[in-house]
């Protein structure tokens, strides 16, 4: 069954959509959530939340890339869950390291962002990522979207860890400069 056919099942409110999604993408979504949460039970609950969210959202959103759409939901759910845990001082190791690295780009402030600011930031980030060379973009998203370890990210991007580290460092510096010029920092 193709992704388009699965999406059609969602739109027709056919529960086969959920079974087919689980059969096809459960390991992928589990890996995405587990990388952030570091706890299998939490990750499983998070993936279940993802299916529920997809069931409720797809008729409205009609995703073009189903696995990426699901991964975005899973990531969001996992981060929400993590932030809850963070308040209880329990955080996933890779998330913590990635989070720390982004301190190069931005120092935390307590300034609350409006919805419009958040949308502008998202748009700017997408534009920045599209402008990056593919290797740098893959590395950046591997590290800060999927929260994969530096070793794993470097491996599937086909480069050494030291090169990946150096490239990530430069990309974060570029991002900082870019966000400043966009008036977002």
């Amino acid at each position: 069954m193709t992704d388009s056919e699965i999406v059609m099942l969602y739109r027709n409110r056919d529960e086969e959509a959920l079974r087919e999604t689980m059969r096809r993408y459960q390991p992928y979504l589990m890996k995405t959530a587990l990388q952030i949460l570091g706890d299998e039970q939490d990750a499983e609950e998070c993936v279940n939340d993802t299916y529920y969210a997809a069931w409720n959202s797809i008729p409205e959103h009609d995703p073009v890339n189903l696995p990426a759409y699901l991964a975005k939901i899973a990531r969001e759910k996992a981060i929400d869950r993590l932030r809850y845990r963070q308040r209880q001082k329990r955080i996933g190791a890779e998330y913590a390291v990635s989070f720390e690295e982004l301190g190069d780009v931005i120092a935390d402030t307590d300034g609350a962002e409006s919805e419009a600011d958040a949308a502008r930031l998202s748009e700017a980030i997408s534009r920045f990522l599209k402008a990056l060379p593919p290797d740098a973009r893959h590395l950046f998203l591997g590290r800060y979207f999927y929260f994969d370890s530096l070793k794993d990210t470097a491996s599937y991007c086909g480069m050494s860890e030291s090169k990946a580290k150096s490239m990530l460092h430069r990309t974060r510096r570029k991002l900082k400069k870019f966000l400043k010029k966009e008036g977002l920092l």
Binding site: S126, L141, Y144
Partner: peptide, 18 residues
């Protein structure tokens, strides 16, 4: 802006790139 908001924005990246 803070790092959490930055991570949220990265989470909204284009699906093709993801």
């Amino acid at each position: 802006m803070n790092r959490e908001q930055l991570l949220d924005a990265i989470g909204q990246a284009d699906e093709k790139m993801i």
